[in-house]
Amino acid sequence: RLHIEVEGTELMKKLVEEAKRRNLNVRAKVENGKWIIEID
């Protein structure tokens, strides 16, 4: 499991799109103003 903290929506969208393209499980949520992304 990969755990990433990202500031900025554009970067988050790119990460999520790339993960979906590779058929990975992606969860994204906002915590303290940062995107928290978990990829399995």
Rank of each mutant, 00 (worst) to 15 (best):
N25T: 11
N23I: 07
I37N: 01
V26A: 04
E17D: 11
V26Q: 00
K29N: 06
G8D: 15
L11T: 09
E38M: 10
L15K: 01
E18D: 09
I39T: 02
E31S: 09
V26P: 04
R22W: 08
V16R: 04
K29M: 09
R22E: 02
I36N: 01
I4R: 04
G8S: 15
L2G: 05
N23L: 09
L2H: 08
L2D: 06
N32E: 05
N32R: 04
K29V: 11
R21Y: 05
K20G: 04
K29S: 11
E7H: 13
M12D: 01
K29G: 05
V6F: 08
E5M: 11
E17I: 10
E38A: 06
I39V: 06
K13W: 13
R1C: 15
L11E: 14
I37D: 00
K14N: 05
R27L: 06
A28T: 12
A28I: 15
L15F: 09
V6I: 09
L24I: 03
E31K: 10
K29D: 04
L11M: 13
V30M: 15
V16F: 08
R1W: 14
E7M: 12
K13Q: 12
G8I: 12
N25A: 10
E31A: 10
K29I: 11
I37E: 00
M12T: 02
M12V: 07
R1N: 08
K13G: 04
N32M: 03
E7W: 15
I37Y: 01
K13F: 12
N32D: 08
V26D: 00
N32P: 01
I37M: 01
L15W: 08
E17F: 11
E10D: 11
K34N: 05
I4Q: 04
E18V: 09
W35N: 01
M12R: 02
E5P: 06
L24Q: 02
M12E: 01
V16Q: 03
K34I: 13
L2V: 12
I39D: 02
V6Q: 04
L24T: 00
G8P: 05
E31M: 12
K14I: 12
H3K: 13
E10L: 11
E10H: 09
L11P: 03
R1L: 13
I39W: 06
I36K: 02
E38S: 09
E38W: 13
N25G: 06
G33I: 01
D40I: 14
K29F: 15
R1G: 08
E5K: 08
A19T: 02
L24F: 05
E10I: 08
G8N: 14
E10Y: 08
L11S: 06
I39Y: 04
R1I: 14
I39F: 06
V16S: 03
K20T: 10
M12H: 01
K34Q: 06
E17R: 13
K20R: 14
E31H: 11
K34D: 03
M12W: 10
K13T: 09
E10A: 11
K20A: 07
K20Q: 08
R1Q: 10
I4E: 03
G8A: 12
E17N: 10
E31I: 14
L11H: 10
K29H: 15
N23S: 09
L2Y: 12
E17A: 14
K34E: 03
E10K: 12
H3V: 15
V6W: 07
E7Y: 14
E17H: 09
I37H: 00
L15P: 00
H3Y: 14
V26L: 06
E31T: 06
K20N: 06
K20M: 14
R22P: 00
N23T: 03
R22N: 07
K34R: 14
A19N: 01
L2K: 07
A19E: 01
R22K: 08
V26S: 01
D40M: 12
G33D: 05
G8L: 14
W35E: 00
L15V: 11
E38H: 09
N25D: 04
K13I: 13
M12Y: 08
N25P: 04
E7S: 12
V30E: 14
V26E: 00
V6P: 03
I37G: 00
L15T: 03
L11A: 13
N25Q: 10
M12C: 15
G33R: 01
K34W: 10
A19L: 15
K14W: 14
E31G: 03
T9D: 14
K20E: 07
K29P: 00
T9G: 08
V26I: 07
V26N: 00
I39G: 02
V30I: 14
D40F: 15
I39S: 02
I36A: 02
A28E: 02
H3Q: 12
T9H: 12
E10V: 07
V30L: 15
V6E: 03
I36D: 01
E7F: 14
G33S: 03
E31V: 14
E18M: 14
R21P: 00
D40H: 07
I4A: 04
R22Y: 09
E5Y: 11
L15A: 03
V30Y: 15
R27Q: 06
M12S: 03
V6K: 04
L24D: 00
W35A: 01
K13N: 09
A19G: 04
A19P: 00
E17G: 07
E7T: 12
I4Y: 11
I39K: 00
L15I: 15
K13H: 10
K20H: 08
L2W: 15
M12P: 01
E38T: 12
V16W: 08
I4S: 04
A28R: 04
V30S: 12
E38Y: 12
K14Y: 10
